[in-house]
């Protein structure tokens, strides 16, 4: 009897955690903006040109896909979708055009009569784009630096 009792105490290494349900937000192993090496890559690294291209491509917007809010977060049209994190610079540039309007959720105010939103409450995509350092400098100098650069002097 003793061996049988011992057997019952044995715990299998295989653990069943139930049906697979993707979490609301997926945290990739590495940030989407930074490509990580393929697990079967023999060198376990990416060439410099690859990473440089990606960081350059990021400026034009196609790589912001992984910061998308999950569909459950903005399925209701009565509330505005959460504004993208202001700490993530990819939203200032990379997020533009990265998602369809439908994907970003509705912006209509609630059903209540006379209920309106203030402009400042709208998601960030309806706001002004952040100024770049170059733009601020161009405004401050009245565009003189651009002209000088353009003129080649």
């Amino acid at each position: 009897m003793r061996p049988t009792r011992l057997l019952f105490a044995r715990m299998s290494m295989i653990k069943f955690i139930g049906k697979r349900v993707p979490p609301n937000t997926i945290t990739p192993a590495a940030p989407a903006d930074e490509p990580a090496p393929h697990p079967a890559s023999p060198s376990h690294s990416l060439p410099d040109s690859f990473i440089n291209y990606r960081s350059k491509a990021q400026q034009h917007g196609p790589l912001g896909g992984h910061n998308r809010p999950s569909s459950s977060q903005h399925s209701s049209s009565s509330s505005p979708p959460p504004p993208p994190s202001s700490t993530n610079p990819s939203h200032a540039y990379g997020g533009i055009g990265g998602h369809s309007g439908h994907e970003l959720g509705g912006v209509e105010p609630g059903a209540g009569r006379g209920e309106v939103w203030d402009r400042s409450e709208l998601p960030e995509r309806f706001g002004r784009l952040a100024w770049t350092e170059d733009e601020i400098e161009a405004v401050e100098l009245g565009g003189a630096n651009l002209r000088a650069g353009w003129g080649g002097s």
Partner: peptide, 24 residues
């Protein structure tokens, strides 16, 4: 063909699978 862990080449909309990239 060089890819990242999401099978993306440096042009992220072009992905590579199978014999023409890493792995057996």
């Amino acid at each position: 063909l060089i890819i990242d862990e999401q099978y993306r080449t440096k042009l992220p909309h072009i992905r590579v699978i199978g014999d023409c990239t890493f792995g057996p």
